[in-house]
């Protein structure tokens, strides 16, 4: 795909989509959003880049192999789920740390957040893995 509009659009869209995805992830607990949506939006950013600038460029931007993302995401979610068992509580019990930040209010960070972070990376990895694989196969097809 060699479209000037797509390329130009992607240059501006990609950072916006990535920032939006982080916003969705962080705010997801209190506003619409969350790991699933955030991960998908981030995935979309990389897919756009791959379509506009080619697979190699997208791979360079992503830095790690999508499979690594999938694995790390799953591991993070599973670990945050098992965390409570270390404290002698049932599996998947949420554990929270609450601070009172002056000028902000209550800041609560808990294992569900890390769980959501795991979901984010898992979904991002899955999206990139499938689309990159398809593009890769398409390129190989074109060469032969």
């Amino acid at each position: 795909m060699n479209s000037v509009i797509l390329r130009t659009g992607t240059v501006y869209l990609r950072p916006l989509l990535l920032i939006f995805s982080v916003f969705l992830l962080l705010g997801g607990h209190n506003q619409p959003g969350g790991g699933f949506t955030g991960g998908l939006v981030a995935g979309l950013a990389f897919v756009l880049e791959a379509l506009a600038f080619g697979l190699d460029q997208a791979r360079r931007t992503l830095r790690v192999h999508p499979l690594t993302l999938v694995g790390c995401g799953l591991l993070l979610s599973a670990m945050s789920a098992f965390f409570s068992t270390l404290l002698g509580k049932p599996f998947m019990t949420g554990t929270w740390w609450v601070w009172h930040v002056p000028g902000w209010g209550e800041l609560a960070v808990g294992t569900p957040f890390f769980f959501d972070l795991g979901v984010y990376f898992d979904v991002l990895g899955v999206t990139c893995l499938i689309i990159f694989s398809l593009l890769n196969a398409g390129e190989a097809e074109g060469k032969t």
Binding site: G34, S77, F115
Partner: peptide, 25 residues
């Protein structure tokens, strides 16, 4: 219980988190 105002997200990552774990697997 879960320090979250978005109930949908709280269900996904906390109340019914084990389903989500299965799903991402």
């Amino acid at each position: 219980l879960a320090h979250g105002k978005n109930v949908v997200n709280v269900i996904l990552v906390d109340f019914r988190g084990i389903d989500t774990l299965g799903e991402i697997t």
